[in-house]
Design a protein around this nucleic acid. Sequence first.
DNA 1: CAAGTGTTCAAACATATTCTTGAATAGATT
DNA 2: AATCTATTCAAGAATATGTTTGAACACTTG
Lengths: 217, 217
Amino acid sequence: MEKRTFKDNIYTAIAGLTKAFSSPNRLEIIDLLANGEKSVEQIAAQTAITVANASQHLQVLKNARLVKTRREGNFIYYALNGRKAYAAWKAIRDLAMEQEPAVQITLRQFRQEAGSAAGLSYDTLPQNDRVLFLDVRPLDEFSAGHLEDAHSIPMSELSERLAELPRDKTIITCCRGPFCTYADEAVQLLNANGFTAIRMEENYLDVQILKEEKWQN
Amino acid sequence: MEKRTFKDNIYTAIAGLTKAFSSPNRLEIIDLLANGEKSVEQIAAQTAITVANASQHLQVLKNARLVKTRREGNFIYYALNGRKAYAAWKAIRDLAMEQEPAVQITLRQFRQEAGSAAGLSYDTLPQNDRVLFLDVRPLDEFSAGHLEDAHSIPMSELSERLAELPRDKTIITCCRGPFCTYADEAVQLLNANGFTAIRMEENYLDVQILKEEKWQN
DNA sequence: CAAGTGTTCAAACATATTCTTGAATAGATT
DNA sequence: AATCTATTCAAGAATATGTTTGAACACTTG
């Protein structure tokens, strides 16, 4: 094989993969699927994408092997395909948060308006009995994976279940990650009700990766 | 700010970044620049891209803040902008090598024809005096950064400088990374001349990241 | 200041990508 | 077998992207 042919083939193949990452809608889908499998309808409902369009994006992701499918009854559930697929999305996300001004500005402005200020990074958080980790994602996402010591109250039920929460601890709200707004809404609600709440920046997968890296060495 | 506006802005901004990664030519440029700064002409010469086209791709990369520039005399030198930019490219590359059949097949076939078989990963390599690390990249790239204990002979000079190499050690050739062919050519030349040579899979930056991760924890 | 060199720009063309709409399909339920 | 439901497909319009070509620009050197 020619040296040039080799390189062309390699970089073209990888570009096929990165193209799957290069649409806002697909990024939102990836970010969503990182929190557990979802049907096409569920995905369409949680994003501003129509069902047909979501289906097409999912085909693109599937052809790039970024997602895998599972059928159950009438539903086809899509899920992220493998740890490295998430790792790639995380690397891109981290890069954007570090050096993409539009991302930084938008994040800062939204958080400021939402009253949730800057989120805290997991590894700067105290791990003692003065804090409570509160996962406000829908229950099925919590079931699919969560921080060991997290308490679950889906955002949709939070206002009715405030009694479950301690008033003498700092509540760390966690959700789907830095671009998810559940944790911001939770912080707002909790602070308005006399609790002390802060949002965590990462999602549980990020924390898991962090811990694995620590163990590994 | 509306929740929806927030997410649209965020994911659109990040997609702007990933689009910069989504062209074969730009990926080749990124992979090249990871080994040290280069002028537009140099980049065009090392790839199959015309100067004008390379310049345009570089503008795209610059707008995405993936590369930075430095002027010296008549030349403008482009370099990768920051560790996270490389980390993102590496995450994508690793993902592709793990689960993109086209990449795996092309790599295997090329290496087989080149007689360099499968490359070895740095962390599986013995670090004793039975091996010699031989960096066959051009001298300026070696100068920009290399493995501590590596010996440098640019591929273009290798055939005339074989006398410098020991016949009683295993020679580990290293170059720009898994998609660079210098190390394969070197292995072929060395084996044909009675040396024992194997190519290393990673480049020096990958090894550096690997070592940092070990130190960190 | 003129000439030379490296780089960028602008226009034009061909090709890809995205979203919408409405119909088709595959599997489950009745 | 007929019906229902979730999902996918197909076609078309609007927009975006990649490459080539030739000219323009910016800086250095004579």
